[in-house]
């Protein structure tokens, strides 16, 4: 049996113009031994949920700078649940005003990262989330 790898989808919903931050995170996760499916700019919530399904990921990381997070993120979560992928952990990064964070967590987002987050923290959080639930002993 091969050792299962943590599979992560990194996606940028909405109309943001660049994906530097998302790429930094993608590389950091790869360097931490994860398999990162990278989908690029301007993804619709439907595209993201469908990719998460096809790739059977454990984690979805959404990067949003555009300010449209309060419409895009609930939709992504809803579609992921509709696909019966409730076990998927959803993380959010980007520019999210503090006052919006509680609502996002309430909806089921595991954690929201602001600008300047060190990637080690994200890696630690992903591992902790998966070891406590979906990933049993290898």
């Amino acid at each position: 049996m091969n050792e299962p790898k943590i599979r992560v989808l990194i996606a940028k919903p909405g109309l943001d113009g660049h994906d530097r931050g998302a790429k930094v995170v993608a590389r950091a996760l790869r360097d931490a031994g994860m398999e990162v499916i990278y989908t690029g700019l301007r993804q619709t919530p439907e595209m993201i949920a469908d990719a998460a399904l096809q790739e059977d990921v454990d984690v979805v990381g959404l990067s949003i700078l555009s300010g449209a997070h309060m419409t895009l993120i609930p939709r992504v979560l809803e579609l992921i649940r509709a696909n019966q992928q409730e076990h998927v952990k959803v993380f959010v990064g980007g520019i999210i005003p503090n006052e919006d964070i509680p609502a996002l967590l309430q909806l089921g987002v595991v954690k929201v990262y602001g600008p300047g987050t060190v990637t080690d923290e994200i890696i630690r959080d992903i591992r902790a989330q998966l070891s406590s639930s979906e990933f049993s002993e290898k």
Binding site: K5, Y38, G40
Partner: peptide, 16 residues
């Protein structure tokens, strides 16, 4: 690291 970045989907938007 044993990790990977799988980026082919970036080019496959028309199939979504």
């Amino acid at each position: 690291s044993g990790g990977a970045i799988l980026g082919d989907r970036v080019r496959m938007r028309e199939l979504a």
